[in-house]
Amino acid sequence: MAKTVHKGHSATTAKVSLLDRIKMALSLHKKNSVSTLLDILRQPANSLMTILVLAIALALPSAFYVFSQNAKAVSGSWNGGVQMALFLKDNTTEQATQELMQKLNLRPEFDQVTLVSKQQALEEFKSSSGFGDALEYLDDNPLPAMLVLTPSSEVATPSQAQVLVDELQQERIVDVAQMDMQWVQKYHAMLDMAQKIGSFVSILLAMAVLLIVGNTIRLAILNRREEIQVIKLVGATDGFIRRPFLYTGFWYGLIAALLAALMVNIVIAVLRGSASTLAELYSSGFSLMGLAPSHTLSLLAFGAGLGLIGAWISVNKHLRDIQPN
C-alpha cells in the first residue's frame, strides 16, 4: 500500500519541474505583492484611516527618538562650561601648591589648571561683590587660595567628573573640592528618565501597531471567508492562502512608516528655525538634526516588519478556523 502512495504522489508532482516550480513561486510572490499593493492604493478610503493611525503610532516614537538624540547632542558639550574648584587649606605652602599643580597638569583629564591665590581671590571678590569695603575691617584675608580645573574631553559624563572630584577631595592640601555642574547632572537624570519613559511608550505603540494590523487583517480574512473556503477545496495550501494577507500587512506597515518619516521630517523642518534662534541666544553652534537616512531606513524596516508580524499572528489565528463545509 505504501508503494502505491508513493507512486500517486510523484505522479502529481512530476508534472512540474523544479525550475518551473521555483519560477512559479517567484511569479506568485510578484503577483501577490503587486496585487495587494494595488488593492490598498485602489481603495484609499478603506485603508487610509488604518494607515494614518499606524503612521501616527510609528511617528511618535521616531519623533521622540530624534528629540532625544538632539538633547544628547546639546548636553554633549556640557564640559565646555563646567569647571572644578579646589579650595586649598589655609596653611598650604607655596611649594605644596606648585607640586599639586604640576601633578594635575600631567594628568590627561584636565585641559587647564590655574591658580587663584589668596590675594587674587580677594581682588576678585572686592571688584565683583561690592562688599569690598567690609573686608577692610578684617585683619586677615579670609579667602582661601583656589585651583580652577577645566576638564578635558576625556571626562565625558557627570558621573566621571564626580569620581574625579571625590578623588581630588582626598588630596592633603585640598580643603574642599567642588564642581559647578549640578544642572548637568539634573539634565542628564531627566534625559535618562525621559528616555526610559520613551522606550516604554515606544514598546506600547509597537504593540498597538501589531494589534491594528492584526485586526485589519482579521477583517480582511473574514470578508473573504467564502473565497478562502473555495480555494481550500481546490487544494490550496495554508501558505498559498496566507501569502496575500502577509503582503497586505507588509504594505500597511511600510506605507505607514513612510508617512511617519515624512511627518517627523516636517515637524523638524518647522522647528528648525526656532531652534537655531534659541541656540544663537545661548551662543551655541547647535542645530536641530532630522532623521538620518540610516534611521529612516530602520524606521521603514521596523514598520514593514511590524506589519508583517501583525498579519502573521492574525492569519495563523483565523485561517485555521475557516474550513470548507
Binding site: V16, D20, G235
Partner: peptide, 9 residues
C-alpha cells in the same frame, strides 16, 4: 485557480 494553486507555470 486550481492550476495557479498547484504551481503550474
Amino acid at each position: 485557480l486550481p492550476l495557479v494553486i498547484a504551481g503550474v507555470s
